[in-house]
Computed example of a mutant assay.
Amino acid sequence: MKFMLTKIPAMTGLCLVLLGGSAPGGKLPSLRPPLEVRPLNVQAESDKALAEALRSQSPAAFGRLRQRIRHAPSPYTRYWLSYLALYESIYYLRQADRGRAEQAIRQGLALFQEHPPQRSEDFALLAYMQGFAIQFRSGMAAAAASAKVRDNATQALQLDARNLRAYYVLGSTDFYTPARYGGGKKAEAFLLKALTMPDQTTKAAQTPAWGREQAYELLVKLYQRESRPVLARRYYAEARRLFPGSQTLPELGRSLARPVAANP
């Protein structure tokens, strides 16, 4: 399953202030932050951590970001720690280390076992990670995992019918389910529905906003697979306008340049 991890909301960082000194009888000390005060955007920082890890061939960047998340406590701390574990698993897969990749995603999923999901966003991320973890299973275990993915994504929509990420997960699950098991029939509808949803349904700080870029990418791949190049190019062009800095869309664009026989 291809994962692109795209545009998530800000998480407030922990800030310290230092008192400036003053001579007796002088002015009162001023409050000066020792560092620039900036919110912690875990989604953007996760992208950077993955890029740095791949460049340095070391997972150290994930450990540093994990500490920053833990020192900026919020209602979404466990959510973002799980999300980061997904990125770390992606890194190990790209390093051809399936053992550590599986271990990383299991650690992320374990956070949901310790603290069961309650919010729509929790169920959507849990379903997303369960879908990613299916590649480490086979046979009946994989089939059972797919059912859990659909159940949790559906639960996310029951709690918030406008959750873009839940529609994306349902579309992704159907896209990657083999046709002999009934897959490939609902992906288009779910992905198009995802694109009609807002990035966030609440303006509360630290809530997630990823999923739109991934939905576009998968929709383009679906149209490629079905030999519908006009639609593939249309949605690719939309995605490029919305995400000009994407690291993965250019590769998808190169695949669109290859000749494909269109369906009538």
Score class of each variant (00 low, 15 high):
R55T: 10
L86N: 02
A127E: 08
T6A: 09
R32T: 13
Q130A: 07
A156E: 07
E217Q: 02
R38G: 09
L242W: 03
L222V: 03
M4E: 15
T12F: 05
A44I: 10
A110G: 07
A153V: 07
Q200C: 04
A23F: 14
F136S: 02
Q118S: 14
A257K: 15
T207E: 12
A110I: 04
R64Y: 13
L231P: 06
H115D: 14
A49M: 03
P116F: 01
A110F: 11
L31Y: 08
A133D: 10
A53E: 08
K203V: 14
R55E: 15
W80P: 03
A153T: 05
M4F: 15
E217K: 02
S120V: 10
C15S: 13
P116L: 03
V260C: 05
P264Q: 04
G211L: 05
Y216Q: 00
R55Y: 11
Q200M: 06
V37C: 15
L65C: 11
S227A: 13
P59F: 10
R106K: 10
T196K: 08
T12H: 08
P33V: 06
Q67A: 11
V169T: 09
H115A: 13
G131H: 08
L28Y: 10
P24Y: 08
R258Q: 14
G183C: 05
V220D: 07
E213N: 04
E226Y: 06
T202W: 02
R258P: 00
I105C: 06
L54V: 12
V17M: 09
T201L: 02
Q95M: 14
N263Q: 12
D122T: 07
Q155W: 05
L159A: 01
P75K: 13
